[in-house]
Design a protein around this nucleic acid. Sequence first.
DNA 1: TTTTTTGCAAAACCTTTGCAGTTGG
DNA 2: CCAACTGCAAAGGTTTTGCAAAAAA
Lengths: 155, 155
Amino acid sequence: MTVSSLTPPLRFNSPETVLNALRGHGLRISTARRVVVQALFAAERPLSAEEIASGEEGGFPVDLASVYRNLETLEELGIVRHVHAGHSAGRYALTGDGESEYLACERCGALAEVDPGELDEVRALVRERFGYEVRFTHFPIVGLCDECAAGGESQ
Amino acid sequence: MTVSSLTPPLRFNSPETVLNALRGHGLRISTARRVVVQALFAAERPLSAEEIASGEEGGFPVDLASVYRNLETLEELGIVRHVHAGHSAGRYALTGDGESEYLACERCGALAEVDPGELDEVRALVRERFGYEVRFTHFPIVGLCDECAAGGESQ
DNA sequence: TTTTTTGCAAAACCTTTGCAGTTGG
DNA sequence: CCAACTGCAAAGGTTTTGCAAAAAA
């Protein structure tokens, strides 16, 4: 039994580990880059580019275009991914250990992270019946959360 | 047994039936309106507003804003609805008998209409497990169709 | 110093809105 | 005739792109 078989595939567990990975790819560590990475670590939920750019999540304001460019770079490296929940803007999160799947509420915007495997039956059923291969990582299941389905406030 | 119990709830089976319904609501029958309705009947698939406006589906070119306004009106009357399939523009279709649910291919844009009830198990599973109430009418299940999953052409 | 990255501005998409002129009833 | 509807133009929201100035290495 080797040491490497005991150490899990080194994931990123801090902004520094991500920044080091970026350095390893010959990329430079700018302040905008730092703000994006720190915001993603600070928030425990997927953030919109606008939320990151505003600086409200840890950092300070950064140009929106730079945020999008950095998110794109991070996605190409597999460090970040994004989800489209209903009509709202895309939301970005660290990939972490495997890609989470989501359920989104079309009414209140809630985004529920699903435990791994919890949608396997759905996936299998859709595959068998329609031949479609589905992962609710990029386009989540959209519907009404329990509260909104129970007839939340207005409308 | 009354006559009304034998006649199914009169659905719209031709452009004229829709136009008559519009008249019944005090709305006027303009040429743009006619083009939109005819296009939806002519195409047996959901159309984007752009496709309708271009006139490529039966009619002749109509202003895009008018198309959106007409689609909105028709949706308010329950005659039309629209689906968001992945990154592409919304696609509009006649409601027909009940609202169809869809599966969309994130890669090739295919939109598969699902037979009624075929997603009931999925719906029940999602309800039990997460409390979410889901209908894949407005936001379909998005994934890869069999062809694209099998490793279609590029990418 | 050199290549990357930023900020700002403009543009690309899709959709909505304002408005004056046209048209259906 | 008059309210409804259209076309055009502009704007709104999200994301992308061009470019010259700034900054990382």
